Amino acid sequence: MEKTMEVHVPLLNSQTFTIRDTQVADLSALVALEQRCFATDRLSKRSFSYWIKAKHRVFMVVQQDDQIIGYGLVIMRKGTRLARLYSIAIDKNIEGKGIGRQLMLALETQTVAAGKLFLRLEVEKTNKRAIGLYESMGYKIFGDYAHYYENNGDAFRMQKPIRQAAKHNQLPSYPWYAQTTDFTCGPAALMMAMASLSEQTVMEQPLEFDLWREATTIFMMAGHGGCHPLGLALAAEKRGFKVKVYINQPLPLFTSGVRQPVKKHTVEVIEQQFESRAQQQNIPVLYADFDLNALKDALESGSKVLSLISTYQMDGYKVPHWVAITAIDEECLYLHDPSVPEQHAAGFDCQHIPVALDDFIKLSSYGKTKLCTALVISKANFKE
Rank of each mutant, 00 (worst) to 15 (best):
E150S: 12
G138V: 07
L33A: 08
S339A: 10
A89V: 09
Y177Q: 03
H224N: 12
L73D: 03
D21T: 13
F209Y: 12
K304G: 13
A327N: 08
A25W: 00
I325S: 04
H344W: 13
L119K: 06
A235D: 06
D359V: 03
V62G: 10
E237T: 13
H168S: 12
Q279H: 10
Y246N: 01
E150G: 14
K116P: 08
L33G: 06
E108M: 11
S173Y: 07
E331G: 12
G153R: 08
L357G: 08
E2T: 14
F156A: 05
A324Y: 05
L30A: 10
G231F: 03
A193V: 15
V340R: 15
Q102A: 13
A345G: 00
R84H: 10
L121G: 10
A146T: 06
T311G: 04
L133Q: 03
F48H: 12
Y50Q: 09
Y246G: 02
A165F: 01
L234H: 07
H147K: 14
I19L: 14
L11H: 02
T126G: 11
Q273D: 06
V323C: 04
T217A: 07
T111W: 09
K368Y: 05
K53W: 00
I52K: 02
L333A: 02
Q343R: 14
S307I: 06
V376P: 00
R36V: 02
S87V: 04
V285C: 10
G96H: 08
N248S: 05
V62C: 15
I325Q: 02
L73N: 10
L363F: 03
D349N: 15
R277S: 05
A54F: 03
A29P: 00
S303P: 05
V74Q: 05
F382C: 10
T180D: 01
V202K: 07
V355I: 15
E6F: 03
A374Q: 12
F290G: 02
R120F: 11
L308S: 07
L295D: 07
K53D: 07
L286I: 13
A193Y: 09
A288V: 00
E135T: 13
A89L: 08
L234F: 03
Q159G: 08
D337G: 02
L82H: 15
V245N: 04
L43T: 00
A32N: 11
V376R: 08
D315W: 01
K3P: 00
A189R: 02
E199K: 15
Q15S: 11
K318C: 05
D349G: 05
R42F: 04
I270M: 06
G316D: 06
T109N: 14
G138W: 01
R157A: 01
M203K: 10
V58S: 15
T16F: 03
T80C: 11
R81H: 11
Q200N: 15
F156Y: 15
K140R: 13
E330I: 00
E108S: 05
A235L: 08
L171E: 12
Q200T: 15
N152M: 04
D289T: 14
Y148P: 11
T311N: 03
T126S: 13
Q249P: 01
D21G: 15
Q15V: 09
K97Q: 14
S339M: 13
K238G: 06
A288E: 11
K78M: 10
V243F: 13
L171D: 04
N127G: 12
I75W: 00
L308V: 08
T255M: 01
F17M: 04
T111M: 07
V269K: 03
